[in-house]
Design a binder for these strands. Structure first.
Lengths: 216, 216
DNA sequence: TTGTATTCGTGACTCATTTCACAAGGACCC
DNA sequence: GGGTCCTTGTGAAATGAGTCACGAATACAA
């Protein structure tokens, strides 16, 4: 129950554990050790135990952690008990690529619509998902109960559309644009900036940074 | 010179400063205050000063930081003085979307080739970039002097291709696959895992986490 | 030249995260 | 039932990151 304040890096690790637990559950494994989870999530066994101990005693000493109950607990902690309803805004190349990304569903995120400005696309379906006019953004978000948005529009309109999404009641935005969005109350934002990651790689290489890094 | 050990989050911030400095330089601005850089990079003025002071005294008290020299210094620190030669491995939807991402060039990363298994694509050009056979991965990487790879292949072959890239002498991999790659000595890896980010969003929303987060 | 308003640079402090070491609990074999 | 292995759970120590407050240096006006 004690879903205390969790740091960003810890959430990332939990995500990693969950991924591995799902895989193990599908394989029929019953228990897993902290060491094994650590290997997969690029961390240490002690770290895994400390992380999981935040939520009570789940493991059994001498055996390890029961795979399915632990998986379900992490699902609960991360807020994934029911799937999130999401949309992709901007059905350009990147947007359509994401529409075809089948892992969304497996991980608990259901893409229910895409939005674009292109009249050629509007009304059609891409990967089985309807493309709607961005003019109807607010009303469609409300009627379809969309809670999350993946933003893949060009730099120019990015800020304005993010504001409209916030206004329409979206709870979270995954930002693929190179634009830094303003924080808005009630809306969580997470950026996937390719340039930032590449520059991080560049830095690590020139400084001879051996460690594989965030190991993803 | 004192290019000391820099934390991952600091590198991310430096990246943010650099982005803003490039913008200001293009506008002709001469100086910028720590406060202004902080606003744009979603941090505090004190943090900006602390970050930059790691590399010596660049600012002028009472005035701020000179835009162009500071930009050049960050370019040097991040290892971006000369452009990196990069390739995209996997010319599927996501791969081709990235091939068309013009910001690569502006930020100092030159995509010189793409690789795929599809005979339909091999030998053609996508977005002006030649698509080569993945069979020739090693030889092409060597002859073209490719240092960085963006990995956008399916889960199945991801590990094996990452190993081949490492073997061929690539120095860094930006991993867009949902596969966790093994660390290899001499190769830096950075993952862009959509599921991890979405789960992070999910967690923050269910726990009522207001803060806009990493602000990107 | 003096005074005032800015803004950086930095050491001290606080807070958070990670690592360490080891006791406690359970499984398993004989 | 006793002994032996494992593996977790967890306080304490160590490390690291971020914040604060203030002195030092500069610009600018009068």
């Amino acid at each position: 129950m004690s879903t205390r304040k969790i740091s960003d890096s810890m959430v990332r690790r939990l995500s990693g554990y969950l991924r591995q637990l799902r895989f193990l559950a599908a394989e029929g494994r019953r228990v897993v050790s902290s060491q094994e989870l650590a290997d997969e999530a690029a961390t240490t066994a002690a770290q895994v135990r400390k992380d999981l101990s935040q939520f009570g005693s789940f493991g059994q000493r001498g055996r390890g952690y029961p795979v399915v109950p632990l998986r379900d607990e992490l699902v609960r902690i991360l807020g994934l008990r029911r799937p999130w309803r999401a949309c992709v805004v901007g059905a350009g190349r990147l947007g359509t690529a994401l529409l075809g990304y089948e892992d969304f569903g497996k991980r608990g995120f259901e893409i229910v619509a895409a939005f674009d400005v292109d009249p050629e696309l509007i009304g059609k379906e891409v990967e089985g998902i309807p493309v709607l006019s961005i003019e109807d953004l607010e009303s469609e978000i409300r009627t379809r109960g969309i809670e999350l948005a993946v933003l893949t529009v060009p730099h120019g309109p990015a800020r304005r559309i993010a504001d409209r999404l916030a206004e329409a009641g979206v709870r979270g935005i995954l930002n693929f644009t190179p634009t830094r969005l303003r924080a808005r109350p009630g809306v969580s934002i997470r950026g996937m900036d390719i340039a930032v990651e590449l520059e991080g790689l560049s830095y690590r290489i020139v400084t001879g940074g051996e460690p594989g890094g965030n190991g993803a």
